[in-house]
Every structure is written in structure tokens, then in C-alpha cells.
Simulated scan of single mutants.
Amino acid sequence: MKNQTTITEFILLGLSTDPWMQIFLFLVFLIIYMTTLVGNVLIMLVIKADSHLHNPMYFFLFHLSFVDICYSSVTVPKMLVNFLAEHKTISVHGCISQMFFFILTAGTEVFILSAMAYDRYVAICHPLRYMQIMSKRICVQLVSGAWTVGIIYALLNMGLALKLHFCGPNQIFHFSCELPHLLQLSCTETFTNEMVLLTSAVILGAASFLLTLVSYIPIIATILRIRSAQGRRKAFSTCSSHLIVVGFLYLAAFSQYTKSSSVSSTVLEEMFSIQYSILTPMLNPIIYSLKNKEVKTAVAKLLRTFKG
């Protein structure tokens, strides 16, 4: 180990090496990032400004939007800079820091989605006791619990990552510093890192997914008992949107974080990463908020206030 060179920075090769394609990708992802920021900030402003939206459902939407802004901002700004930069480098500690905040926000997001599923379960299956069960204290505890799980998950994996030694090569065939790619470049043994990553990803992923699934089973059973066909369609539309996004998010992230570090990067893997780390934060405001009649009314009211 004494004769080996210590790597101090990595090269992020990104999605393409073609200069014109990089400019095109820069514009595409800049639009996606700006849409993510504007959409989520707008949702947060609307929920804060409109007293009709001060209830548990929108409390969780507010925090989901905040997490989505953080989640997207961990990787996309550096990705945009690298599209235009000649030297697409990031320091080792900067790479590990990016990995830490990525895991933290991703872990927090999935458990906030689980809390939202539980909120819908109480609203649909126990409507008369909804405000009693989903008190402000319970809502704060659920969001705080989501952040706590995310922090523990990130600290656990970052602590082990800090012990890794990198002596070359230093090229990451990806647009961000995700832990599986760091493990591929380590000159030291990564078995413990892989086992901790696999175990923590499986436990946390399975726990959050099962919480969402268990919440939706009685919801679907209740919806099936609705006599109005229009009411059933509306309810199923809301549920299916939520479940589809959660399903794609879990499937893509699970495939990335449970594979062996010896498996090389593929186009499909990069598409999965784009889906769960870049597209999901952009789509969440549309799926969970902008399709909601109350939110659209509040947005229109807020825009009229600004114009006035």
C-alpha cells in the first residue's frame, strides 16, 4: 500500500463524450432541473399561503417537495457543470459528500412516501377519526422519523466509505458519485461495504415498500365498495399514480443498490439512475399535487395575487 499512488480526485465521464451531445444534454437537464425547482417551490408556496391546505395531506406534500428539491440539487448542478467543463473532476471527499447527501435524501423520500400512503389509508378507511389520528404531533413525528432513517442510512454507509483507499483508476462511468461506483474503484477490500449496503438497502427498501403496500390494500378494498363508478375511477386514478411512481422508484433504486460492485455500468443502469434521481423529483409535483383540484385552485389564486 505504501508504494501505491493515492487518488485525490475522480473523473465523472457522464452520459456522453461527444461535445455536441453534451450541449444538448445540458439544455435537456437544465430544463428538467428548472422545472423541478419551480414546480416544487410553487407547491410549497401554495401550501403555506392557502389556509385551506393546512391539513395532514398537504403537510406531507410540502415536505416531499422540500426533499425533492434537495434530492435533485445533490447531483444535477454538478452534472450540468460537467457537461460544459473541459475537466470533469470531483475530489474524493467531494464525491463521498455527494454520495452521503444523495443517500440521505433518497432514504428520507421513500419514507415520506410511506407516510403519505398511511395518511391516505386513514383518510379513506377512517374518515371520521382522520383529524384525531393524524394530529399535528403524529405528522411531525412521521416526517422526523423519515429524516432520522435517512440520516442513519447515510451515516452508516459513509462511515465505511471513508475507510476506502483509492489508488487508480479514477474514472467513474457515471454522472454522479453513487456508492456502487465508488466501491468499484477501491483498492481495499469492499466486502463489508457491499454487505452493509445490500443489507441496509434491502431492509429499508422492503420496510418502506411494505408500509406503502399494507396501507393501500385496505384502501383498494374500500374503493371497491364505492357505489359510484365515477368515484371509483377517480380514487383508483389517484392510487394508481402513487403506486406506479413508488414502484418505479423502488425498482430502479433497488436494482442499482443491490447489485454487485463488480458489475460494470450499463446504459440501462444510467437510465434507471436518471429515473429515480432526476425525473422522480420533477414528476412528484405533477402526480401528487398539480392533478389535485384544490391545489390547482390555490395555484390560480396565488398567481392572481401576484398579478394584482
Rank of each mutant, 00 (worst) to 15 (best):
H181V: 00
A229I: 14
F111M: 01
K78T: 06
S135M: 03
C125L: 10
S228V: 04
S215M: 00
C70R: 00
A206W: 06
A206E: 08
S273R: 12
S144N: 11
A252M: 13
L30W: 03
M158A: 15
V38E: 05
T297F: 10
H181W: 06
M44Y: 09
K293S: 12
Y71T: 00
A154F: 08
N55T: 12
I133F: 10
Y130M: 11
V140N: 13
V263K: 14
M34Q: 15
C125E: 09
L283G: 03
K48Y: 12
I90E: 01
Q184I: 06
G150A: 05
L185F: 03
V245K: 00
N193V: 09
I203M: 05
F29C: 03
V41H: 02
H126P: 00
K301W: 12
A123G: 01
M134V: 06
F66A: 04
L160E: 03
K48T: 13
V76S: 09
F248M: 13
L303N: 04
T108D: 03
A206P: 01
G247L: 04
T105K: 03
S135F: 01
Q256Y: 11
Y250L: 07
K296F: 01
S186E: 04
T5G: 08
I47V: 11
G168C: 11
G231K: 07
T266L: 10
N292Y: 07
F10S: 04
E178P: 13
I23K: 13
K293Q: 14
Q98H: 05
F62I: 12
T190L: 06
L183F: 02
T17R: 15
L80K: 09
F24L: 15
G205V: 02
S255M: 12
D68W: 05
R225G: 11
L224H: 14
F173L: 15
F166Y: 01
I69F: 12
K293A: 14
V246H: 10
L197K: 01
S114Q: 04
T199E: 10
G150L: 02
L42T: 14
L204D: 04
S237N: 07
F60S: 02
S240C: 14
N170P: 03
L249G: 12
G231V: 05
P127F: 11
R129H: 14
K163I: 00
L30Y: 01
Y288A: 06
S265C: 12
V196C: 05
K136C: 14
S73C: 13
I32V: 11
F254L: 09
C95S: 05
T36Q: 07
E270V: 06
L128R: 13
K307H: 10
C239E: 03
G94V: 11
S265Q: 13
T305A: 14
L113D: 07
V196Q: 00
A85C: 09
I23Y: 06
L204K: 11
S97N: 15
I244H: 10
S51A: 06
A123E: 07
E86T: 15
W20T: 12
H181G: 08
C177S: 10
R304M: 10
V196T: 01
I23G: 10
V81F: 15
L211P: 00
R233G: 05
H52L: 13
Y58D: 10
L279I: 07
I219C: 02
N82F: 00
L211H: 08
I219K: 06
V110M: 08
P285S: 09
D119S: 08
F254M: 08
P218D: 02
T89V: 13
Y130W: 12
M195F: 03
A85T: 08
T188G: 00
S215P: 02
T190H: 03
S265D: 11
